[in-house]
Design a protein around this nucleic acid. Structure first.
Lengths: 239, 239
DNA sequence: GGGGCTTCGTAACGGGGTGTAACAGGATCG
DNA sequence: CGATCCTGTTACACCCCGTTACGAAGCCCC
């Protein structure tokens, strides 16, 4: 993978230099940019793994830029803004930003977010991949988003029960994100209390259908003491 | 075909404006609406090709509105919700929504869904719809509303018994709406007790006549633990 | 390293819901 | 009156899914 390449976009020079310097000292390759056009230049010039985008760019609007970038590119975007109002935060997510940080921010927090987004982005395209129209592809499998069946990498149709289908949907909606049994149960609409091992059995049965070796799951992994996660080859060491 | 005309329904003004603006800039004709009554006004005023319907509409329930709209209109509906719980998603499908998007969403994803649903709708008209003169068409079948027979997609006449005809009428009057056995029995005029499996048998026998594969019904579906529904999500068949 | 505890996988069981074959009573019609 | 059709009931099989029980694996602490 090599060193992650960040594009830092901020029209305020002091801020831009501070960010660039800090991130470089943290081990990233950083390309600074001051305005919209420079973004396009940088993207045209070489690989960029993540964009750190200031919302207030003088006469330009970072949110709009974000939306525009999202239309043509897939790389993750973190919005940075002095406005901490929550509706602004929402506006950020609504245009597809991967995260949002309010200024002034704790440098460590920024680092953590950058790394988290990079890690997520690094794996997401490879294993789980959301298609338009509610369709999903994951690890060679394909799920059409509505029927109670999935198509194996080899093209076979595998029937799922209703509950298994719902579990799969929950997982696909949260790829690479650890889910506790409680969260899964809630997402499945289980009202009452955590009724023992129901989720475990669900997982086991879904595994039996989609894992080539259910004993050594590669898609639906167990996080001991935590829950389950879809296709994260997350070694817990890199917290 | 011309420009597609969308109806955006959301009671939150900021969200409504954002959606309206974004979709207009994406080339659609957009009519905004804030509540249920405004939907009827817009529908009465002119052609609408697709409805983007927020599930949380203050005191109104988008899912119910969806079901109601489905009873009288056939245009596609995309439900938008902040609730990502999957059973909510199911509730959306069961009332006949064509797709479902969780907030916050990626605008590009929204665009893709809107286009996909429009394309699909343009090609295949809604599964169940009411025709003038009390006539019905569903999944290629045709029922004239009077005689005890239906016409298959291929043009064959298939005789129905009196009771089967009544069941079909009940279902056609409530397309995409889950009906419990009790509701069906009541609609059929069955007084007194819920006499066990009578409705089941009725359903089975009607299926034997109108489903190409009664073992895997596509028109008259079972909702386990709930009841039956006419053609709930059949319109989602391809991408 | 080892004992003991916790967590997890899974085989087995059982209850509930549904499909459907078979049957029987009733209606219809010649 | 007899044949046929319609329709509800019954019985049985099947599937789904949560529970339980037990063994294996992981983790902690000494």
């Amino acid at each position: 993978m090599g060193i992650a390449r960040l594009l830092v976009v901020d029209d305020d020079e002091e801020m831009r230099l501070m960010l660039t310097d800090f991130l470089r000292r943290s081990g990233f390759h950083v390309t600074p940019a001051a305005c919209g056009p420079e973004i396009e230049q940088a993207l045209a010039r070489g690989r960029i793994d993540l964009i750190l985008l200031d919302v207030m760019l003088g006469d330009e609007n970072g949110v709009e830029i974000c939306a525009r970038l999202r239309r043509d590119h897939e790389m993750p975007i973190i919005l940075v803004s002095a406005l901490s109002a929550d509706h602004q935060r929402m506006a950020g997510y609504e245009v597809g930003a991967d995260d949002y940080i309010a200024k002034p921010f704790n440098p460590e927090l920024l680092l953590a977010r950058v790394r988290a987004v990079l890690k997520r982005a690094r794996r997401t395209p490879s294993l789980v991949y959301r298609r338009s129209g509610g369709q999903f592809a994951f690890a060679g499998w394909h799920y059409d988003g509505k029927r109670d069946e999935v198509t194996s990498p080899a093209g076979f149709q595998v029937a799922l029960s209703r509950r298994e289908t719902e579990l799969l949907k929950v997982l696909l909606a949260n790829p690479h994100i650890p889910l506790s049994r409680e969260e899964i149960a809630e997402a499945l609409g289980d009202e009452g209390e955590a009724s023992g091992r129901a989720i475990d059995m669900l997982v086991t049965r879904l595994r039996a259908k989609i894992e080539s070796d259910p004993k050594a799951p590669e898609i639906l992994k167990t996080l001991r003491g935590t829950g389950y996660v879809l296709a994260a080859d997350v070694s817990l060491s890199e917290a």
